[in-house]
Design a protein around this nucleic acid. Structure first.
Lengths: 170, 170
DNA sequence: TATTGTTATACTCTATAACTATA
DNA sequence: TATAGTTATAGAGTATAACAATA
């Protein structure tokens, strides 16, 4: 069943990717300028803020980072900057509990207004109240669906083509 | 007037970012496995396909890459892989015309089905026909709006504040 | 044995600045 | 002078694999 997408769907898909790419780029810039943060780092801080307490590395990673080592790296940067602290977990000796510091919270607070500005100017500006509801509903469902999906196949096989592979199948 | 976003908007924004991040990641994987391509490279090839003829570097860059050198790099990789060729433009001696090769077209064709599969399974699966129309309409408007936006301030100045990578020496 | 995390390493993308050549 | 591209280079993110410690 290699049913393709209809033209409308393909168009929607590309428009979505491009939009978010532009949005992401703008946001990345705003965060960098106003807080010296990458979006990934902002996400981690935001998640910690949202949780209202410490999180383990694993909990922190979910949906934000796609490799353990990547998270370790980012958490290390945040810790070095004094935005979070890391310590052992009383429940599970293997786990590392990450806690946002006051400095971290302050930074999030300082960066938030500008961040929200970008989102409003770029994303919400051209949308009506009705659009907003529709988008919220739709994208919410999409995200839930994607979260449920296992990371696309259990890596059936690996192909290591460093450069774009040309031509026919090998 | 630093009016923040309403909770619903903030939620929508984050859901959108997360969804596309997941989608992007999946797509990146599919393209890598089946064609040894990055999404950026796929985009460039797709754009060339769509144009139906050669494009200048500048035309090619639009919306895909955010720096000239980045495009030069990617185009170089594509050329080295034999997916595109580059040559001088008859109209403007400064310009470089990029043309997709048959190999390039073949690769796009080979990768497309799987690519579309990912989009369908992850993005469109949970959407009704009505959702699709709504999303297409909304996201289309958003993209047009964003394209119109100048790249968020003409880089008035560069500031590095409280970056997690700096400050405390190691 | 399976998890939680870290480390070490290697690869790649990205961006800035300097430079060439055309318009 | 402004624009089109390239080059060189530096900086950062990410992932894989190997490893340590705990469940």
């Amino acid at each position: 069943m290699v049913e393709g997408l209809r033209p409308e769907q393909l168009r929607t898909y590309f428009a979505l990717m491009e939009s978010v790419s532009l949005l992401h780029h703008a946001v990345e810039q705003q965060l960098q300028e106003e807080g010296g943060l990458r979006y990934v780092q902002f996400q981690l801080l935001a998640r910690l803020t949202d949780a209202g307490g410490p999180l383990t590395m694993t909990e922190l990673a979910d949906g934000v980072v796609y490799s353990r080592s990547g998270l370790t790296h980012q958490a290390g940067l945040l810790a070095k900057a004094g935005l979070v602290t890391r310590g052992p977990s009383p429940d599970d000796q293997r786990a590392t509990l990450v806690t946002i510091t006051d400095t971290g919270s302050a930074l999030v607070a300082r960066v938030m207004p500008g961040h929200v500005d970008v989102a409003r100017d770029l994303l919400f500006a051209p949308l009506s109240e009705q659009d907003l509801h529709a988008l919220d509903d739709i994208i919410g469902r999409v995200r839930d669906h994607m979260r449920a999906r296992p990371p696309r196949s259990a890596a059936p096989r690996k192909r290591r083509t460093a450069q774009p592979t040309a031509g026919t199948d090998e």
